[in-house]
Design a protein around this nucleic acid. Structure first.
Length: 508
RNA sequence: GCCAGGGUAGCUCAGUGGUAGAGCAGGGGACUCAUAAGCCCUUGGUCGGGAGUUCAACUCUCCCCCCUGGCACCA
């Protein structure tokens, strides 16, 4: 059995989950489920990033301990996963002791190796924002109002010797064309490497930032951002155990954190630690809302939970996986969502399942006939599973769903071509009717298997409605072999019921 | 500024040298198993602009315009 380890980025708990968080989890989940259906031994890791200045400040503002704040915020993200139905095997929290131990161990190792050094750093410090700023933050030669007083200060800190690995990284990037998906994003790393790489400041004095993991070699400091967050991929991979899952096969991330965080920092950190590199990065794009960039400041955000409440988790999953060409940006609009729900899911997919089961009940008392599967449809099924497999191996969920939609359409056509209601009127055509119903039952069953990575709840309902006593989502079972013959179907229940919207009621 | 991705039917996008495609939306039709769903037919585009190469360009070359993104802590 092949092993497959996929991660999402861990979400920063300073804000509430939004569409982007939800998408990334669904994308990784679809791939994880896909690999499971192929028989791989999958380990799927997601989680949250809980340390840092903003969390400390937010907790302070609310008058609670940072840990209590994290507990509360993390619950929102965990809840999001539950609502989405993600099949993760581990939900990482960076405040867990096991994680902190690994971070400390890694820091110590790099310090011992001379890759971390201590140096006086002179810079501009914004008292109001409690952070260092650079001349680049100036507008027209002045510090913007939001920074308040900016003073020049000296603060000694610890630095990670990244510059030492620049040449190695460039060679690595050049020699691994499939390292980043989509491939054009690898150029962004190569581009960033054209300029000399500075060393990375990895510490903050405890006096300014206490909510972090202490440096093992200097308790007056905590480690800052990336050294904490990125290590989660390793620290939660059962590191140090015999069944350790590292290296990851796929790191799913947003395009905003490829350069420099993952492509440069993380890659060099692993190199310096002597740890194997992840096989690939799957870099997705951004969601826009009605053509505009989503931003918390303008309130231009989409709450995934609201959509799930109204349309269900599978409708949400389907929409994002169908609408976004992996790696590209995509536009979200409520109208488009409702449209896809009604048309793709309700009218085409859900209705096909419904009419197939209804006819089996009406014409054969619910018993799936034993009859040969229509060869054209059988061919279409084979073509579809091949297409889905090819698409999913390239992470192209939108193409996989397109293939599934095509088979759905083909099956709907088939119903009209054969017109079972006509066959049912003539007892001499009973064998033909049997063949049509058997073909439909198998097509619906296969559609359920192929759709499971995308819409798992619905897939389970399909098998239930087909009267299968135990679920079977193995890709290997997605062949037209009439294996349901003799079984009794269950009650047909609309999978994606028509949802009345206020606009619909206005119709004359 | 540098680098990358993109500009094709009302909308979302596919298409890489040989008479422009799909889905949705719009229009028409036949049917009734089904979630008033599905099926069939159909309207619709000087393929961002200009020049060039070619018997032939959406497809190759060059120039230009526009959008988006990366280069700078935010899925």
């Amino acid at each position: 059995m092949a092993s497959f380890f996929i991660t999402t980025a861990i979400d920063y708990v300073n804000g509430m989950p939004h569409l982007g968080h939800a998408y990334e989890k669904v994308l990784a989940d679809a791939i994880a489920r896909w690999r499971r259906s192929r028989g791989d031994d999958v380990f799927f890791l997601t989680g949250v990033d809980e340390h840092g200045q903003k969390v400390q400040q937010s907790a302070q503002k609310q008058g609670v301990e940072p840990q209590a704040f994290c507990d509360e915020m993390s619950a929102h993200f965990r809840r999001l996963c539950e609502r989405l139905g993600t099949s993760h095997d581990r939900f990482a929290r960076t405040t867990e002791d096991s994680h902190k131990r690994v971070v400390a161990q890694f820091l110590q190792q790099l310090h011992d190796a001379g890759d971390i050094y201590f140096e006086e750093h002179e810079g501009f410090y914004s008292v109001r924002q409690e952070q260092f700023v650079t001349e680049k933050d100036m507008v027209d030669g002045r510090w913007p109002e939001i920074f308040g007083d900016v003073v020049k200060t000296k603060e000694p800190n610890y630095f990670f010797r990244m510059s030492k690995y620049q040449d190695w990284l460039r060679t690595y990037a050049e020699e691994h064309p499939h390292w980043i998906f989509p491939s054009f994003r690898r150029n962004e790393i190569l581009g960033a490497l054209e300029k000399p790489l500075g060393d990375l400041c990895i510490s903050r004095p405890k006096s300014r930032l206490s909510w972090g993991i202490p440096l093992p070699f200097d308790p007056e400091y905590v480690t800052y951002v990336w050294f904490d967050a990125l290590v989660n991929y390793v620290s939660f991979s059962k590191w140090g155990q015999r069944d350790c899952r590292w290296p990851a096969d796929v790191h799913t991330i947003g395009k905003d954190i490829l350069v420099p965080a993952h492509g440069i920092y993380w890659t060099i950190m692993l190199k310096a630690l002597g740890i194997e590199q992840p096989r690939r990065f799957l870099v997705h794009g951004w969601w826009h809302l009605r053509g505009e960039k989503m931003s918390k400041t303008t309130g231009n955000v989409v709450d995934p939970l609201e959509l799930i409440d109204r349309f269900g988790a599978d409708a949400f999953r389907y929409y994002v996986l169908r609408e976004m060409a992996v790696g590209q940006d995509a536009d979200f609009s409520p109208e488009n969502f409702a449209q896809r729900y009604r048309s793709d899911l309700g009218n085409d997919f859900g209705n096909l399942v419904n009419r197939a089961i209804s006819m089996i009940r009406r014409y054969r008392g619910g018993n799936i006939p034993s009859a040969p599967i229509d060869p054209d449809i059988a061919a279409a099924i084979h073509e579809t599973r091949d297409g889905v497999a090819a698409a999913m191996d390239d992470f192209e969920t939108h193409r996989a769903l397109e293939r599934i939609a095509r088979l759905t359409q083909r099956a709907n056509q088939y119903v009209d071509e054969r017109a079972p209601w006509r066959l049912a009127k003539d007892p001499a055509l009973a064998a033909d009717l049997d063949a049509v119903l058997a073909t439909l039952a198998d097509t619906v069953r296969v559609l359920g298997i192929l759709a499971e990575p995308f819409i798992p709840h619905t897939a389970a309902r399909i098998q239930q409605q087909l009267g299968m006593d135990k679920p079977d989502f193995r890709f290997a079972a997605s062949v037209p072999d009439g294996r349901l013959a003799g079984q009794t179907v269950g009650e047909p229940q609309p999978l994606f019921p028509r949802i009345e919207s206020p606009e619909d009621r206005r119709a004359p």
